[in-house]
C-alpha cells in the first residue's frame, strides 16, 4: 500500500495564498488506510485551516468531500458537479491522485496536502515500513525476500559493499541493519547461499521515464 503523511500546515497555507474558497478532497483509498488522507483526516485538515485563518484574522471558506479513490475516473461524478464552486482543490491523496485530479480539472489549482512516502506494509496501526521502491525489476526471489534496492543504502544489486560493520549494521547508520548481511543470513537459513554469488547486471538508474503497464490480454483493446 502507498504510505503518505501530511505536510506541515504552514506549507499548505503558503500554497493556498489568496485562493478562497477551497475544497479539501479526501481519498478513500491508500491514504485513508494509512491514516493520512481519509475523510477524517480531510475534515481535520479543513478544521485546522479554518482555525489557522481565523487566528490570523482572516476567513477561509473550506468544505470537504471524500471520494473512494482519486486515481480512477469512475469516482469523480460528484466532484465534477462541485469543482466549479471552488478556486482550488487541496487533495489528500498520494502524488498519483493529486495529478489525476489536476489533469481532470486543468483550470483549477490542485494542491497536495500530503507528502507521498513509499510503498510499504503496516507494522502496526499508524506505523509503516518501506519495502518496495517499485523499481520494476524484482530480485526478491534471489535475495531471500529482502529487497536490496529498498533496504541497502546504496541500492546495490550485488552486495554487500565494504561498508558492513562487524555487527552486521550499515556504515551509513549503526541502527540500520546491512541489507546484504540480512540477505546472507536468510539465504544460509534456507540452504540457498549459492544464490548470493550470482551476479546481477547493474541497474540503469538514470534517465527514468514515466512507465506504463498494459496487461497482455488488454493490448488489443488499447491498440498497443
Amino acid at each position: 500500500m502507498i504510505i503518505a503523511h501530511r505536510k506541515p500546515l504552514e506549507e499548505i497555507v503558503e500554497m493556498l495564498g489568496q485562493l478562497n474558497p477551497v475544497l479539501v478532497l479526501g481519498c478513500g483509498g491508500c491514504t485513508s488506510i494509512c491514516l493520512a488522507g481519509g475523510q477524517r483526516e480531510a475534515e481535520q485538515l479543513a478544521a485546522d485551516l479554518r482555525e489557522d485563518y481565523g487566528n490570523r484574522g482572516g476567513q477561509l471558506e473550506v468544505n470537504t468531500y471524500t471520494i473512494e479513490r482519486q486515481c480512477n475516473a469512475d469516482f469523480f461524478a460528484d466532484i465534477d458537479r462541485l469543482a466549479g464552486d471552488y478556486q482550488a482543490i487541496v487533495s489528500t491523496a498520494c502524488g498519483a491522485g493529486v495529478q489525476f485530479v489536476a489533469e481532470r480539472y486543468p483550470r483549477l489549482p490542485v494542491l497536495p496536502a500530503l507528502n507521498t512516502d513509499f510503498v510499504g506494509f503496516d507494522k502496526d496501526v499508524g506505523w509503516y515500513e518501506e519495502n518496495c521502491r517499485t523499481c520494476g525489476d524484482c530480485v526478491l526471489g534471489e535475495t531471500g525476500g529482502i529487497c536490496p534496492v529498498t533496504r541497502c543504502a546504496k541500492s546495490l544489486f550485488n552486495g554487500p559493499c565494504g561498508g558492513t560493520r562487524a555487527d552486521g549494521t550499515c556504515e551509513v547508520d549503526p541502527d540500520i541493519p546491512c541489507a546484504w548481511f540480512e540477505i546472507h543470513k536468510r539465504l544460509r537459513e534456507q540452504g540457498r547461499l549459492e544464490l548470493i554469488t550470482r551476479v546481477r547486471p547493474a541497474r540503469e538508474w538514470q534517465n527514468q521515464i514515466r512507465r506504463t503497464v498494459i496487461q497482455e490480454p488488454y493490448r488489443e483493446r488499447y491498440g498497443k
Binding site: E103, R104, Y222, G223
Partner: peptide
C-alpha cells in the same frame, strides 16, 4: 471527453 485519462487511440 472530460475524463482525465484520454481515450485510447485505435491503431
Amino acid at each position: 471527453r472530460r475524463l482525465a485519462v484520454p481515450e485510447p487511440k485505435k491503431k
